[in-house]
Design a protein around this nucleic acid. Sequence first.
DNA 1: ACTGGGATGTTTCACGTGAAACATCCCAGC
DNA 2: GCTGGGATGTTTCACGTGAAACATCCCAGT
Lengths: 288, 288
Amino acid sequence: MAEDNKPRLGRGLAALLGDAAEESGASERGRGQRRVPIEFLRPNPRNPRKSFDESDLTDLTDSIRERGVLQPILVRPVPNVSDAFEIIAGERRWRAAQRAGVHDVPVVVIEATDRDALEIAIVENVQRSDLNPLEEAVGYDRLMTDFGHTQLDLSKIIGKSRSHIANTLRLLKLPDTAKAMLADGRISAGHARALLAVQDPDGVAQRIVEQGLTVRDVERLGQPVADQGVKQPKVTAEKDADTRALEKTLGDILGMIVQIKHRGESGEVLIRYQDLEQLESLCHRLQS
Amino acid sequence: MAEDNKPRLGRGLAALLGDAAEESGASERGRGQRRVPIEFLRPNPRNPRKSFDESDLTDLTDSIRERGVLQPILVRPVPNVSDAFEIIAGERRWRAAQRAGVHDVPVVVIEATDRDALEIAIVENVQRSDLNPLEEAVGYDRLMTDFGHTQLDLSKIIGKSRSHIANTLRLLKLPDTAKAMLADGRISAGHARALLAVQDPDGVAQRIVEQGLTVRDVERLGQPVADQGVKQPKVTAEKDADTRALEKTLGDILGMIVQIKHRGESGEVLIRYQDLEQLESLCHRLQS
DNA sequence: ACTGGGATGTTTCACGTGAAACATCCCAGC
DNA sequence: GCTGGGATGTTTCACGTGAAACATCCCAGT
């Protein structure tokens, strides 16, 4: 199955969904370009793409008003419905054309099966750079649920690691607030992922924004030691007075910079030496 | 000067050089679209863009063969030469159109002054995502040398930090081999920058590729201690036997993980403790 | 029931990037 | 000559990303 799909998801098919859509459609699927009333077109109900950049859409709308739709929309006939086509690629153009009040639009009709069309649309879509991580995850989920792809398949098709696919999918499990913040860019994918291990993801998501928590901060909040229900300080930003005093004491004694990074019960002591004599002195103390 | 330029380098002017080139050109500069023989066009001799992605160009060439040039090329008349236009934006289209054997191409002629046209072209160009760091640097240098911009001006126009501008410019000082490797993507901008502080940048550039040196590796090679002329080991990848033995000895004595990162004469000792008792024990030894 | 292999779940951190911080230069004004 | 402010040069490293490494689950075969 996956092996069967892969040759069809190479360079040529990426082009099908890009600038060369008309070319490939015309030569490979045979129906050529024509114009149809815009109301004949309907969006693919399962297209994961839900958000469209407003400013891009405005620009495109203006451009279409001036010049019309230059690049045809890739569609297929809706089964058992006359005068109806489902958009495979070009939904953004369709939306902008509607805004521009265009009556007819150029389309290329292809004879894709349901599965082909959808698969192509989703693969193309997940690779757009303006996709948010949740949209990407929905695409991956669709490819797996509806087309039986494994994570490993997708990693090969898309060119990312299997764990990247898995981690992106996991983001779908976040509670709604955190997901909204991820979708609108207030928190990063790395932050969101780290929230999965936290007890109160929505609450910590707020703190990310308000207090500027880093990904490392959130990861540490999600570590098993967090299960003790103790109020967790922002351990990277607030070193307690005791730790600071100890750093100073040891630093003064040793004549070297000492840093203590405490995490729950454990941590690290880091000592910087300037020359081999200091290293020797330090080893001596440690071995006594 | 910079203040004067900035309003003209906003959203509208970015659009001038993008998909909406025709629209803005037509409404703001008045000359509208027309077709001219392709041989009338000549590239901007000072356009920093020298390399064009082969695969993109092939796709675009095929597309143009099928449909012609859909988006006009932004040009201005060449002074004192009849039937000649200088390309302000769209050189890639022009190149592809030539390959496709197209006779006429659509252009929008604008009445930009020399300075306007060039400035616009360079600003637009440095913001392309497919530009290599050296091309970016050439663009910045031009904007500073030819238009009197400061690094701070550019940082505001382009939306990057002033130090990013400065660091990118410095890449131009690299010797030829290193520059070639940067240009073709064998080494990263971060690697290349770190090479500036190294005695033998070209030699170390080779090592980056052959031995997989990281940016941190190269930075350390470039530190003043490197001036001692000693053959520098790859300190992050090859911990000498003595250091390893010392780590083990101390680790065994302390019952904790000990790591020693040695750099020239100096370095760091890092000790990981699992609980407060270990920390206390460690402090005791250090204070004795 | 056990084992092995494939698939998925999760954690952790090395990496290059971008910019803060620091250093130095240049020039005008006093 | 000194000072202050602006401009440029340089180093260093915190950051989020992407993936290695590890953990766990599932299913088929013996």
